[in-house]
């Protein structure tokens, strides 16, 4: 009974006691985490802390050995696969921009656009007026109207990043998981990305996994520190930075 009560909490994403082990090595160890609707959360931690595995669990790529993962107070994510979870409204942006290289920019957005997903409907479907309008809108937001008929393979690295953000907008998820968005970026690009994420956060909940402390500081949101698959500390960046355990994990060894 208590479980249903817990599930009816207001949390958008609810992880409780999640454990994942690979050949005896516990990538996640009894991890619990709450993300409220509309929240942006930064997750930091040293290499091997379990950040990416946590994302894999939430998006259905990896099944946890134990624990609960509940989305939006009702959906048990441990029972669903990637496609189901994506349809529920969880989007994921990978570290490396992955766009469909052999498709035009517009087709990339069309594929990402929330709505039709089943193969037999797509066989006969032509883009509707509403869909076209939405595509035009997104193209103008990411300022790529001139390139809309260009193959994605011919875009520059920066343009691909933008296209991917456009695809996320088109997908319109309730919760967006972002994996190390600023790896390999210059300071200016990092700052721009932080702005974009804050902008997206106005309408979507966001979980950002990141190494880069200055970027996390720029986001200015609640921080969760992972270590060896469990939560080590939670709070503002200043609070967690002051935590001696966190200091030890990052500097001690």
């Amino acid at each position: 009974m208590s479980m249903t009560e817990q599930r009816s909490t207001s949390a958008l994403l609810y992880l409780s006691g999640v454990t994942v082990s690979f050949d005896g090595f516990k990538a996640l160890n009894n991890l619990s985490l709450l993300v409220e609707p509309g929240e942006m959360r930064a997750i930091i931690g040293p290499n091997g802390a379990g950040k990416t595995t946590m994302m894999d669990v939430v998006t259905g790529k990896t099944r946890p050995d134990e624990g609960e993962v509940v989305f939006d107070g009702k959906a048990d994510l441990t029972k669903l696969d990637e496609a189901d979870i994506a349809t529920l409204g969880i989007g994921r942006k990978f570290q490396k921009p992955t766009v469909f290289e052999n498709h035009t920019v517009r087709d990339n957005l069309l594929l990402a656009l929330a709505g039709l997903r089943s193969w037999y409907k797509l066989l006969l479907a032509a883009p509707t007026k509403a869909e076209n309008n939405r595509l035009d809108e997104i193209l103008s937001i990411i300022r790529m109207e001139p390139q809309q008929h260009m193959l994605a393979a011919r875009l520059s690295h920066g343009q691909k990043q933008w296209l991917e953000i456009g695809m996320l907008l088109a997908q319109d998820p309730k919760l967006l998981l972002v994996d190390e968005p600023v790896a390999g970026m210059t300071d200016v690009e990092t700052e721009t990305t932080a702005q974009v994420l804050r902008e997206i956060n106005k309408t979507h909940s966001v979980v950002v996994v990141e190494h880069d402390m200055s970027f996390v500081r720029a986001l200015g949101v609640k921080v969760t520190v992972l270590h060896e698959g469990s939560m080590l500390a939670e709070g503002t960046l200043d609070q967690v930075s002051a935590d001696p355990r966190v200091v030890e994990v990052y500097l001690g060894r």
Partner: peptide, 10 residues
């Protein structure tokens, strides 16, 4: 896998 994460039942 990108298509799966977009919600397509591949």
């Amino acid at each position: 896998s990108r298509m799966r994460f977009l919600g397509y039942r591949v």
